[in-house]
Design a protein around this nucleic acid. Sequence first.
DNA 1: TTTTTCACTATCCTTTTGTATACTACTTAC
DNA 2: GTAAGTAGTATACAAAAGGATAGTGAAAAA
Lengths: 121, 121
Amino acid sequence: MEKTKESHPHTLDECTKSILPVRDALEVLSGKWKLPIIISLMFGNKRFSQIAKEVPGITDKMLSKELRELESNDLVKRTVYDSIPVVVEYSLTEYGHSLKVVIATLRDWGVAHRKRMMVES
Amino acid sequence: MEKTKESHPHTLDECTKSILPVRDALEVLSGKWKLPIIISLMFGNKRFSQIAKEVPGITDKMLSKELRELESNDLVKRTVYDSIPVVVEYSLTEYGHSLKVVIATLRDWGVAHRKRMMVES
DNA sequence: TTTTTCACTATCCTTTTGTATACTACTTAC
DNA sequence: GTAAGTAGTATACAAAAGGATAGTGAAAAA
């Protein structure tokens, strides 16, 4: 049995180094469109134009760019069916689904934050 | 098995609405400098120039701007001591410390992500 | 024959974010 | 009298992110 769970940092120096993975995590969710795309795919596989409809306001250019980024991070899988016309299906990978925990944590903190900020204004 | 304690969303529509708090959480950590500033303050109260030294590369303008934002979100407290010369102390609020959980979650996912991305390249 | 659907790409433009550099006002030390 | 430290501000600029609009090519529907 390995007991090599990452020791959480407790000096400033260790902590500064451990910023990089935090940044990585923030980056895969960064930007205006990744979150809605991911969430849309959490409810099932979708084609390009279906996602475009479910994410109101997004342009083709942005959707295409974000999907490529998500794919390069292994979060989304792109499957081409050589039907006529060509149909491309996007799906969340299992790994992509692992973001649920992260998103839930952010959501919980965010909900509390909203409440707090409303009360005192 | 799925026993929602605080009604986690399970339809696309509910989920889309619950994006806003997630965004709020992402926003308080967004940008190049907030994370290092927060982490530096997790190790104790600091003066302006001390933070500037501990966060290498940051300019006065950015530090000033980010501290103002963090203050407006109740994460950081600014205390002015009317000594000569004037000394200003920045500290994480208790609420600011509540970000630890969020950062730890992001860090854990990020560490796994780094490993995964290294192996397959 | 023109339009529509599919999944994009290309070009240009605006907005946001961050950088560089200089400057303020005050006081102590050299 | 000049430099250094206190905590910033002001101005100009560069880079990154995102938006608007048009175009690609094949096929099917009007």
